[in-house]
């Protein structure tokens, strides 16, 4: 089976910045990436995710700062000597080579013996379940199959670190979920460090060990999906990863997830309601319902409830009370 470079693959990004002319695309980023970790860079378009990834891969020079692999600086090592695997946005497969030649390319340019290449390629094709397509050209494959060829090609020379730039961006929703599972499974089996770029928050939440939320070239927050979802530190992090209501109180701003709120018709709940008001609108989504709620103080809140819990159905225009557990509202930093 696949042997990962088990002693290699931790990456240190130290105060890295990138300027295009006077424009700052990446602004002093510090990251400590563990060996074997699945780290996701998440952020809106233009937040510098690709730029950071390209600097790690060696395609872009660093303006200031340093990048190190297992403690040794690689800032001056050219891209072809870094030995990082990379899955490009749009895959960038070699159109004139067969799947087999694509996957074996890295070993072939390293002048490894023919038999070794053949064996390794077979193993990789097996891993991504493409054995029967070995002799096709990339143009004769579906998007999902091309994506797996790109993955096999990038993993074939057993890189300590694999960089993926929105690898599922071109796939439709259903296929994405399927390939996400396969990708996660492959990560588990090869144990390579994955650095994964996406702007799809669900993808980030379900796949990552840790997520880096980026905005305007800087890191907003780093943490496990659980930490980021339950304890966002500011409005941007709370709003970008999942939905959030923001409650402005005298001592600061609180973030409150819509699904953590319980809603009851006026006077029917137990205990003291946190807020009271009227239901503005209800949108039905099958398994859940989204309620827009206006408090008596004029605050707008979104409340998500599971459809099965809405037994005595609430109606639009009805007055109701809101409840939530202590600690559900998270105080944000200024």
């Amino acid at each position: 089976m696949f042997e990962a470079n088990s002693d290699k693959g931790s990456l240190q990004v130290r105060n890295v910045s990138k300027y295009f002319g006077t424009f700052c695309a990446v602004d002093g980023i510090d990251l400590e990436i563990q060996r074997g970790e699945f780290l996701t860079l998440l952020g809106p378009s233009g937040s510098g995710k690709t730029t950071l990834l390209m600097m790690i891969a060696g395609f872009l020079d660093i303006t200031t700062g340093d990048i190190a692999l297992d403690g040794n600086s690689i800032s001056d090592v050219p891209a072809e000597k870094r030995n990082f695997g990379m899955v490009f946005q749009g895959y960038a497969l070699f159109p004139h080579m067969t799947v087999r030649e694509n996957v074996g390319y890295a070993l072939s340019v390293r002048k490894r013996p023919e038999s070794e290449i053949r064996e390794k390629v077979n193993e990789m094709l097996d891993l991504v379940q493409l054995t029967e397509f070995a002799d096709r050209k990339p143009g004769q494959l579906s998007g999902g199959q091309q994506q797996r060829v790109a993955l096999a090609r990038a993993l074939c020379f057993e890189p300590p670190v694999l960089l993926l730039d929105e690898p599922l961006g071109a796939l439709d929703k259903k296929l994405r979920v399927e390939v996400q599972d396969q990708l996660k499974d492959i990560h588990r089996r090869v144990g390579t460090t994955f650095i994964y770029v996406t702007h799809d928050q669900e993808e980030a939440l379900s796949m990552s060990d840790r997520i880096v939320i980026m905005r305007d070239g800087a890191v907003e927050q780093v943490g496990t999906p659980y930490e980021l979802y339950e304890k966002p530190i500011n409005e941007f992090a709370a709003g970008f990863l999942g939905k959030s209501n923001f409650l402005h109180r005298s001592d600061g701003v609180y973030a409150l997830r819509p699904e953590k709120i319980d809603i009851r018709p006026s006077g029917t709940g137990e205990g003291e309601p946190r807020l009271s008001g009227t239901i503005q609108s209800i949108t039905y989504f099958g398994s859940m319902q989204r309620i827009m709620f206006l408090t008596t103080d004029g605050e707008e809140l979104e409340v998500d409830i599971d459809s099965w819990r809405n037994r005595d159905p609430l109606a639009e225009g009805q007055s109701a009370d809101l409840f939530w557990d202590k600690g559900a509202a998270v105080k944000l930093e200024e």
Partner: peptide, 9 residues
Amino acid sequence: DASRNLGAS
């Protein structure tokens, strides 16, 4: 770029 990334001169 992909070719360089895969170690080709």
